[in-house]
Nucleic acid binder design. Structure first.
Lengths: 210, 210, 210, 210
DNA sequence: GATGAATGAGTATTCATTCAT
DNA sequence: CATGAATGAATACTCATTCAT
């Protein structure tokens, strides 16, 4: 009634939504989106189906909310909205951050992998988050600043500058690409196992690409 | 007397099964196993649902047949049943083979990725193909010959020998691991796009790890 | 071509049909008509489905042929087409015959029981073999000769005459009824188990009702 | 808060389940289990297919629930958990009870007969209700008390005692058997028709075997 | 807000029957 | 005569979503 309780209601609602999303994500990741039933999520979230539909208007809306939230968290975490310039130190810092991110968002990455392997889902996803794709297709030329401060560009630029540092025989595009696939491979492996040698691997990646 | 010989029937049957498996794999990979309906597969294979069940006793049996066949083809293609020893030349050859394999079995890899991300499916898979996992968990010590001539071991051994060639500061386990994740990342990327720079990437991988 | 071979063909055909019917009856009885597939029967009869349809135009036709044949055999075996009069000796003989009949046609009785329990099947059956029902509904008055020489009547008459022999307090209708249900109960039991004491039971039945 | 209490939900659920079971039993008995479709049951119960699966997880589960419930009701009705001793008066009472039971559970007996004629179903049934079989295979020796207070034993014992009353020429095993098959025959007949002479028949049975 | 009963469109699967060879 | 490939209608079962309470 009072503005205070309105606010409180809103917060409670958001907390509950976040909780549902966490529960759902775990099941989507472990059992797959299509095999996970709404009933199952509701039961594990300790509520009825009906109530779940009070928070999310459909199973798909729930999925989208999860993706949206996770992508946002990732973007925020990576703190891309800066000058788009990576110094060598920042590069190392950036890679270590990614490593932490992969570990902490493991369920989300699992889910995302499953979904992105599917052509139509992937197309849908790229419409909403076009920049994400460029993670795997670097190679924008300098001057191409459609998503100017985005990750892909930052990385590409980093390797362009590295070329200048290192001299001619260095192929910056290829190195950016190599770096990306190494990160992807590292991610896939980490998604499963908390291997204690992940630290060593990250050090080596930095060693190779910094 | 019989209008068609047993042999003829058998051959026709096998051809048709292979055809169905191809059609199904494409749809499983593109739309996901759970979203692909048996109806859909049948229609695209130009036959009735009923007939499909003449060839495969269930949707799951079809999936398993596809996986089985693909894994076998991969194993055969990689020709692992040799001495388990990789010379430097063989290593390069091996990497190039893998690259071709990824390109040609693209649909299968897509499907496999989706499935293996799901915990229970993955456990099921590992029961049937235990050695496959070791691809991503190298690090067997010399003398550990549980899957003596398998890929993981071959690779690990290769890097052990490389250590001898290169001297102390070389961490063979870590390098085997790095090599693996690079290959995995390369695979994930290739699964999508026939980028013309895959060749360059492979050359660089050989350059780095041979 | 020649009349002789025509004849031979016909005989072979009939033998084959009888064989199929035997195989089918066994499965119908053991697994139920609806659960037994045409495929199953064909396979167990050592032939293809297609060929079975050469002999019987449908699964139902096969069932009907089996019932028809079995009923005929039973009627023939019981040799009802006589004077409709049962002496005491003939009564005993008749009961012993029934006992043998139950044992030898066990599968058929099993099948029949299953089917007759179903209302619509039963009605269908009664249209085709109206007299069979009277087995369980004796009580036709003398003079009622709708199925004059049939079993039910023979039995009823037997107990009517027995009343005359025995005196007033004997209720012939009730005794005919008692005799019938005893036979039915005996049948149900025999259908399952070849108990060695069946002989004893039959003796006792004769003892009680002769 | 909840518009309906847990208790209310539970009661409604149980009522509805009982109702579905009644409807289903009628159809299973009249048309046979395999020919009765879930759709058909649902329509006659005035609900959607989907809802039926809310109550029973499968058609087979529904069948099992029906059997379970009916068997329990029968056992309860027959009140076997007493001293296992039948006086002459109790014997008469017992037989009359059975007669009522048969009339009231007609549908169930019809269904059971159909099912038990099928070998595999019967085996399954005997695993769950082993004692039921002994109804038709009396003849346990005194001292054999595997199902000590069960019906079969009670009956057998009754006839053993009757032998003592009556003298040597009386074969107690055979008489128990005769009694059983008479009851079975009576049951089979009653299952169909409410003949008004059932009362007379029961009187005669008591007369003969008490 | 909260529940779970209820729906119905959809999905895998079965099987009698037909038919080209 | 003989085969089994092929069909399609039917059937059990699932599940996202709605709704009365």
């Amino acid at each position: 009634m009072s503005p205070r309780s309105q606010q409180q209601f809103k917060e409670m609602r958001e907390e509950k939504m976040a909780f549902i999303m966490d529960v759902a994500l775990e099941h989507f990741a472990n059992e797959g989106y299509y095999r996970t039933t709404v009933n199952h999520i509701a039961r594990h979230a300790g509520m009825s189906k009906g109530l779940m539909y009070n928070y999310f208007e459909s199973k798909e809306a729930l999925l989208k909310a999860i993706i949206h939230k996770s992508v946002n968290e990732i973007y925020k975490y990576l703190d891309l909205n800066r000058d788009g310039y990576l110094s060598e130190e920042e590069f190392e810092f950036f890679v270590r951050k990614i490593s932490v991110l992969i570990k902490e968002k493991r369920y989300f990455w699992r889910l995302l992998m499953q979904l992105l392997m599917q052509n139509d889902v992937r197309e849908q996803f790229l419409k909403v988050y076009p920049e994400s794709d460029s993670l795997m297709h670097p190679g924008h030329e300098p001057g191409d600043n459609y998503y100017p401060l985005q990750m892909a560009k930052m990385i590409t630029d980093y390797f362009l500058r590295k070329k200048e540092r290192t001299g001619n025989q260095f192929d910056s595009k290829r190195e950016a690409n190599m770096f990306f696939i190494t990160i992807v491979g590292f991610a896939v492996k980490s998604i499963y196992s908390d291997a204690d040698d992940n630290e060593k691997t990250i050090n080596r990646i930095i060693d190779l690409y910094k």
